[in-house]
């Protein structure tokens, strides 16, 4: 991987950690019924640092796990996250390198797009939802909360990525990310 690409060890760590955090921590840090979507943050984070195909597959798999761990329709979040991963990973990677503002903006936009798409899916499959109300009370605050979580997670992940990359360069770790 080029630019801010993730070292091989980080991908499984990030994905497993995101799922565990979503199940263990997220329900207890909800604000006004808005639960942060840590898995979505992880998907965007991985997509910023991965090739398109691997990012799309990771998005799909993590979305499926999210679907199974939560109460929504199975297949809904996997569709949303596959699309998001594809979209984000299609950007040129160098625009994210060491550019926190760009990373957070993309996360905010991706999170909002994800929540919006999820809302649309709920409407399509016939779940009785008040679209506008869901948008204002869930999608928008959810996207903001996800971005906040991203702001906390980005530096931590960057730190580990840098450390891991240094070890790789020193020949301690081998292998490719994708």
């Amino acid at each position: 991987m080029t630019g801010p690409s993730s070292p091989p060890i980080l991908l499984p760590v990030v994905t497993i950690a995101a799922v565990l955090l979503q199940i263990i921590i997220a329900p207890h840090i909800a604000i006004g019924g808005v639960v942060p979507n840590i898995v979505l943050v992880a998907v965007v984070l991985v997509a910023m640092r991965s090739e398109v195909i691997s990012a799309t597959i990771v998005g799909f798999v993590l979305g499926l796990v999210f679907d199974l761990a939560t109460s929504g329709p199975v297949g809904g979040m996997s569709l949303v996250m596959a699309l998001l991963s594809y979209g984000v990973s299609s950007f040129r990677k160098d625009i994210f390198q060491d550019n926190w503002v760009m990373q957070v903006i993309v996360l905010l936009l991706a999170a909002f797009a994800g929540e919006l798409l999820h809302n649309v899916l709920y409407s399509i499959i016939g779940y009785d939802t008040d679209f506008l109300s869901s948008l204002l009370r869930r999608a928008l605050p959810g996207a903001l909360y996800d971005s906040l979580v991203g702001l906390i997670l980005f530096p931590i992940l960057q730190h580990f990525a840098n450390a891991s990359r240094k070890r790789q360069n020193a020949g301690l770790l081998k292998g490719k990310f994708d």
Binding site: G75, A82, S90
Partner: peptide, 23 residues
């Protein structure tokens, strides 16, 4: 080399199929 777009389409179709079965 498999086109990324094709991978996306396949995964989207799987997701839609899963959702349809679920409903």
């Amino acid at each position: 080399r498999i086109p990324a777009g094709l991978v996306l389409v396949v995964l989207c179709l799987i997701s839609i199929a899963l959702m349809t079965i679920w409903v």
